[in-house]
Write a protein that binds this DNA or RNA. Structure first.
Lengths: 294, 294
DNA sequence: AAGTGGTCTAGACCACTTT
DNA sequence: AAGTGGTCTAGACCACTTC
């Protein structure tokens, strides 16, 4: 509980106690161990001018960034789970002993990064992959005609193996570490279009079986987030054009040598920790990879 | 000049005269022509409660969005050119008769959209394509090894033609409208890697010749922005895998049938107006298309 | 009516750059 | 020293949702 107001360092020395309109309450009782937290320092603007505490700080970080980090920790720890409502700005401001405006700026950035979603009048919610909006952030292959929609999966293989060297390197594991290997084909309107291989850290995804994958309907990232507490928040893709080899040709029911789009994706969770490697081959005769540059 | 404070409608009825700590100055004299601009309405919170002006407004738009639109207009009109310094927040606040905070929020969004760049202590600058940072927003093909860098261009063809139907459709022109057609090959470290065809509206890019393209060193978008006053601000790409045809194979010095990455890009300037169609074939044996999903 | 996020203002001070 | 953007606060009110 109330692990709040721990080690915040306010480098800004805001105009606090000086003008507090209500009674002359100290306003920030705070356990206040070592260094002074938010909104302390109390001093009329004249004397408070050049506090070395603020300027000399070698590791400068705005208050709202510190708040953002604290909120992110709570998201990461699962204190607030995907889809849930997080405390209101007013409550967080009270908890962290900062103004609502500072909390707001922290949440603004989290919302910009798609970690949370604001809804006027209702509150701020933890983002979840169980939502149409989130689906197409990570699924970029869309039909040339008609509306984008989610493909059906057919799993070819699910097994526990030791990570090959290249996989281990990309996922920040040691070569030989246990990983779960998944191979599947995805169908758009019954047409096999994607063949995909995934590697997941065995430690995190212990207990992931073919059955659970088959049972679960919807994007895999939704399953990962609810069943394994691991939420993918960003990914990096490398895309190339290749020729279909025998295996891909058979699974996609195409001629050997058909050009395919190859994508290698590394997905990251909180703290930029890689937690998935995905290698896909996309048939792009009736679909394309859609990308917005801005 | 001072076309400012024209038609802003403040739906927020801010807390103005009510609490102003200093003397009881009206605080916002304002020329106030037709409809009341920012921070007017003056009235203690009790009576000002349900002003029909604010609530009934059918086309609600926050003040900062209106400011943002005004600033965007100035960018579009060339009042402030790429690379130039725009007026300070304080000055814009004065010009538009709003608080600095409101201007700040408007500029925040413009900065997030890469239309302007803020530099602490110096000011806010109009973004330009004559900058390393901007280059790689639109050039996504990077070498598998080594640092990203810009390719060299060799122009194959530059001519004025009538827009084919498909080109006209994508560029929001009429079939048969004059367009400038450019074909070029791009080399990374001397290796031909990209063959690209561009279509540009003839009206806007009148006077664009092969000579000027050859003379100019650097990204074409830089040339477009300085010589033709047209700045690309976003683009939409569709990517596929294809086989090299005879033409591409010859230009890229590869075998017929080699898999190539095909990209079709439509670029937009202010007002989401399409002003470029670009079709490229990328050789991805030593390069890849890099994309960040977030 | 109460609670939430969204907008707007005003003022103070900090960090950075230039003069 | 002066000017710019960056941070922080405090308070008021609006828009929206729920009770």
């Amino acid at each position: 509980m109330n692990s709040a107001s721990s080690n915040l360092t306010n480098n800004a020395t805001a105009a606090s106690g000086a003008v507090s309109p209500t009674a002359g309450t100290p306003a920030t009782p705070v356990a206040a161990a070592a260094n002074a937290p938010a909104a302390v320092v109390a001093g009329t603007n004249t004397t408070a001018a050049a506090l070395p505490v603020a300027s000399a700080s070698p590791t400068f970080s705005p208050l709202y960034q510190q708040i953002k980090a604290l909120i992110t920790q709570s998201l990461q720890s699962g204190e607030w789970k995907p889809g849930e409502l997080i405390p209101s700005e007013v409550e967080l401001a009270g908890r962290f002993k900062v103004s609502q405006g500072t909390v707001r700026k922290a949440i603004d950035e989290l919302a910009a990064e798609n970690l949370v979603m604001r809804r006027q009048g209702k509150g701020t919610f933890v983002s979840t992959h169980h939502e149409a909006r989130a689906h197409f952030r990570f699924l970029r292959l869309v039909p040339d005609e008609g509306v984008p929609h989610y493909p059906e999966s057919k799993f070819i293989e699910v097994k526990r193996v030791r990570a090959p060297a290249d996989v281990a390197r990309l996922m920040d594991l040691k070569s030989g570490d246990a990983v779960i290997f998944i191979k599947r084909v995805q169908y758009f309107d019954g047409v096999p279009t994607i063949v995909e291989e995934l590697w997941l850290p065995g430690l995190i995804f212990k207990g992931l079986t073919a059955e659970r994958l088959v049972e679960y309907k919807g994007p895999m990232y939704g399953l990962f987030e609810t069943e394994f507490g691991t939420r993918m928040i960003r990914a990096s893709e490398q895309i190339r054009a290749v020729c279909a080899d025998a295996g891909a040709a058979q699974l996609l029911n195409i001629d050997l040598g058909t050009p395919l789009l190859s994508s290698e994706r590394v997905s990251f969770t909180y703290g930029d920790k890689p937690v998935e490697l995905r290698r896909g081959l996309y048939l792009t005769s009736r679909h394309h990879y859609q990308n917005e540059l801005s």
